[in-house]
Design a protein around this nucleic acid. Structure first.
Lengths: 343, 343
DNA sequence: GGGGCTATGTAACACGTGTTAGTTTCTTGC
DNA sequence: GCAAGAAACTAACACGTGTTACATAGCCCC
């Protein structure tokens, strides 16, 4: 094994030709005689030479890979089925177009710092607050990007979901069933929420719930809000606490299916029947939710489509075809078996 | 927005200094006076300059990212919770060491072709048959790599799981319960299996089942084998077929938890009770399996650890610290509620 | 036999960076 | 006042590739 990787100059020297000839042998076979081509390939084989991806990319000006700027560390992202689905959608497009997918977590807790360390043709930016400088940085630098799960922003392509409408619909559904003591299981908004307020999808979903409450003449005082990290265990823990204190809710409205699973776990352990004693709803409609028992009533958002459309937009932007498209995807309430009228 | 991205030469010209000064302003602040540094940074800000990752990587000789060579297209990989878990383990190490993660699917159906298109410091190679040239190509080229879910191979670091022992144990468990009509739900071995035979984990698991059968004096004729793609729906479909034809099995031994879920779905739909009428076992012990109803009896393999150890080995190899370590991880039979004696 | 064309190969440039060796200027100590 | 040294900055190289412009040889046809 050579200590230094072989380069095209080494091959050229070994085959007794110029470096250009080596490049032609690999990329433009007709520009060179068959005999010397054979000789060059033999020398390359001998030396274990393969063109360096970096050199090629630098020269070509394209990396054939798209980056996903993630708001959290990889370990946390990959344990969340929501992101698996989303990446699957983006992956479909990558498969089709021959792109590779770079997962780029924050560097030193900063999404901003991660940007200049990723060799990609463009970014899908997930769950970023649009006023925090990252977006300005990206557009200032002239790199194609698409926003996901952020707030809509002129001048930047984005794919949004009608979170507010979806949340309004499910809240209204529970209220119309007659529920009046609601608990909302919300994903943890992060450390900066107290000073900066809610942002993005979370803000929109909470606003949707407020809409529904207002429509039936109730205020936020009617609901109890628990904010927890998006894991099944945290949903379980929070629900146990909710049921133990004060007057327990008759319905748990979770803003994520994962949290809803945890809520049902807790209720079953407490021997509280779902839905006859307490109703539970989710948000996302992960594929598992249809198999879950009881089958979960939830708000479907087209996660895979979101990933697919985001990647499509990005590739269009990379090719310079289209500029700044926006798309808002609809949601739909999927009523299954985890909800009913209060006792 | 400038048509061409600003380069360090542009900044140098704008600030009236040399290109080296620009580099120092960003990387070695003390090598330059505070005044000119300010001037350079101002010019950079004005022009929207950020150092090109490719240039930096080429010069530094390191990309700070590790590649995962995948055996299937991204869309199929990311719909499989097994890979989510595995990537989570690798992601933990990446988070810790500041690496980024590149998902590299086959290019034109060839894992081999994908290699020279990935700008990474090393590869984790998943589920590759070791005699197919890809491994030779990698070691010939001198790129660090670690094998996962392959056959053990001298001269190449790898992380393996005792698939054979795990499969033997669960098969033996079912046989000892008294089951004699077994159905094995196996993952699809791919188009080349008929000519090349089984490989890697699948081959080892089937061998483990054969071990168990031999121990109690039975042969492969006692089991029915169904090979299906690893999705819940395919597991469901295959089980419906199994139960409809000939004399139905009293136990379904799935080689993947996903397939086991599908099997239970099918049995429940047929109003066949699990486990009193038919027992079902899985393989992997995904986190959902503990929440599944009935709680799934399965073989636990430490998927997350596998990912973590693979990434650790790879990073060691990249740093040149350690060479060719092997690790074989143990499995354990987790007996839950989806199995019992035959009626 | 000479002009025009093709085949073959090479030198030079471009991509964008970090860093080493070297030059100039300014400060310091005696 | 001058040698020695530090500070500030620059020219040149290295990383590894693809490609354009150019040189040389061989061939065909009139």
């Amino acid at each position: 094994m050579p200590s230094r990787r072989a380069t095209s100059s080494d091959v050229a020297a070994a085959a007794g030709v110029s470096r250009s000839a080596v490049s032609f042998a690999f990329n433009n076979p007709h520009r060179i005689s068959a005999a010397t081509r054979e000789r060059i390939l033999a020398a390359a084989e001998e030396l274990g030479y393969t063109p360096s991806p970096l050199g090629r990319m630098l020269q070509a000006g394209t990396t054939n890979s798209i980056g996903v700027l993630l708001p959290q560390r990889l370990a946390r992202i990959l344990e969340n089925p929501y992101y698996s689905r989303f990446l699957m959608g983006a992956g479909q497009v990558c498969d089709q177009e021959g792109y590779t997918l770079l997962l780029s977590p924050p560097l030193q807790d900063s999404v901003l710092k991660a940007i200049p360390y990723a060799a990609v043709d463009g970014f899908i930016v997930c769950g970023l607050e649009t006023d925090r400088g990252e977006v300005a940085e990206l557009s200032r630098r002239g790199i194609p990007f698409v926003l996901i799960d952020s707030d809509r922003m002129p001048g930047a392509p984005s794919v949004e979901v009608d979170d507010r409408g979806g949340a309004r619909e499910v809240a209204r559904y529970l209220l119309d069933l007659g529920h009046r003591r609601l608990a909302v299981l919300s994903m943890d908004p992060g450390a900066e929420a107290p000073v900066r307020g809610y942002r993005g999808p979370l803000a929109r979903r909470l606003a949707g719930i407020a809409d529904a409450l207002a429509e039936v003449g109730l205020s936020w005082d009617a609901v109890r809000l628990a904010e927890v990290p998006v894991t099944r265990t945290e949903g379980y823990r929070a629900t146990r606490e909710l049921m133990a204190s004060g007057e327990p809710p008759t319905a748990v409205l979770a803003l994520s299916d994962i949290l809803a699973y945890g809520a049902v776990d807790a209720l079953q352990e407490l021997a509280i029947d779902v839905p006859s004693e307490v109703s539970v709803t989710g948000f996302d409609d992960l594929s598992e939710s249809a198999w879950f028992r009881p089958r979960l009533t939830t708000v479907r958002q087209p996660i895979v489509s979101k990933g697919r459309i985001a990647a499509d937009f990005l590739i269009s932007a990379i090719r310079g075809e289209d500029q700044h498209p926006h798309q808002t995807l609809g949601t739909s309430l999927i009523v299954r078996e985890s909800t009913t009228k209060p006792a």
